[in-house]
């Protein structure tokens, strides 16, 4: 009797955890482990089953020009968008945190890109970038520039995507900065002003350090987002021209679901995951010690 009740009391928590555990395992843990295992095999095709090949998939990456192009593009994309998006979001947060007229309207318009569906946003920007009569060309025509095929030429395709990325991300990060700014007591600014600190000095020595936890959080998220980007690429450039705007996830998507080379896609995914994990560890490891948490 007592044995049974003890068994019951031990089983109850596990039963309660079961639904969530099943969902997580089915859609997250098992696929992740399977992907890891698959990356050491060949892709099964028809009658030919998968065959263990060790790290061959990983080796072939090094000789894959498209992978290397995607890696380079993604690095450029990250380096270009992350600092700019963070800087812009901080600037916007400071603007909408000050007591200016039309503050609510500004907040809304800065945050709007985050609320809009990615595909819809990309389609709007597709129109902005249209050669000849798109928004950018119409504006630039006033200054005597000829029409540019923004998304169609290898030099401008990736920067065009980056611009959209910055616009989209900055509004989202602004919310975090805004929340953090509002946590800072206004009496700190007054105390600094009494001591004769300029606004820039106050920002540099007080506000910026106090925002560091937010900056770190935003930085990690921005970097992960930049490596997870795919919807804009699909709608606007499809990686082209000549892979000039191919990003890692888009390449993985193509490899897996258009070329059906699932084993190679698995290996690519593992590389992406490893890179993101490494970034996060480095960021938290190095910066965390310098960050003041309340």
């Amino acid at each position: 009797m007592s044995k049974l009740s003890r068994l019951q009391s031990q089983a109850t928590p596990w039963l309660l955890l079961l639904p969530a555990a099943v969902l997580l395992a089915t859609f997250t843990h098992i696929p992740a482990v399977t992907t890891f295992i698959n990356s050491f095999y060949t892709t099964p095709r028809g009658a030919r089953p998968a065959r263990f090949v060790g790290v061959e998939q990983y080796q072939s990456m090094l000789a894959d020009p498209v992978f290397l192009a995607a890696l380079k593009n993604n690095a450029i994309y990250a380096l270009g968008t992350v600092p700019l998006a963070i800087g812009l979001s901080l600037l916007m947060a400071i603007i909408v945190n000050s007591s200016i007229r039309g503050r609510a309207l500004l907040r809304m318009s800065f945050f709007l890109p985050t609320v809009l569906p990615m595909i819809a946003v990309a389609n709007i920007w597709l129109f902005f970038y249209t050669p000849g009569y798109g928004l950018f060309d119409q504006i630039l025509a006033n200054f005597g520039f000829s029409s540019t095929n923004w998304l169609g030429s290898p030099n401008t395709a990736l920067p065009s995507l980056m611009l959209l990325g910055i616009w989209k991300e900055a509004g989202f990060f602004m919310i975090f900065y805004l929340a953090a700014l509002q946590q800072i007591s206004p009496s700190l600014a007054e105390a600094a002003a009494l001591e004769g600190a300029s606004r820039w000095y106050y920002f540099r020595r007080i506000v910026f350090p106090l925002l560091m936890p937010t900056t770190l959080f935003v930085l990690v998220n921005a970097l992960i987002n930049s490596f997870r980007l795919i919807d804009h690429v699909i709608v606007m450039t499809r990686g082209g021209p000549d892979n000039a705007s191919t990003l890692l996830l888009y390449y993985i998507y193509n490899t897996a679901f258009r070329f059906w080379d699932t084993a190679y896609a698995s290996a690519l995914t593992m590389v992406l995951l490893a890179a993101l994990a490494a970034f996060s560890f480095i960021q938290f490891g190095i910066l965390d010690r310098k960050v003041h948490y309340k």
Binding site: S185, S187, L188, E190, A191, L194, I206, P209, L210
Partner: peptide, 11 residues
């Protein structure tokens, strides 16, 4: 000036 909240810089 000494503030009611002290206004110390937490970091």
């Amino acid at each position: 000036m000494v503030f009611q909240s002290y206004a110390l810089f937490p970091h």
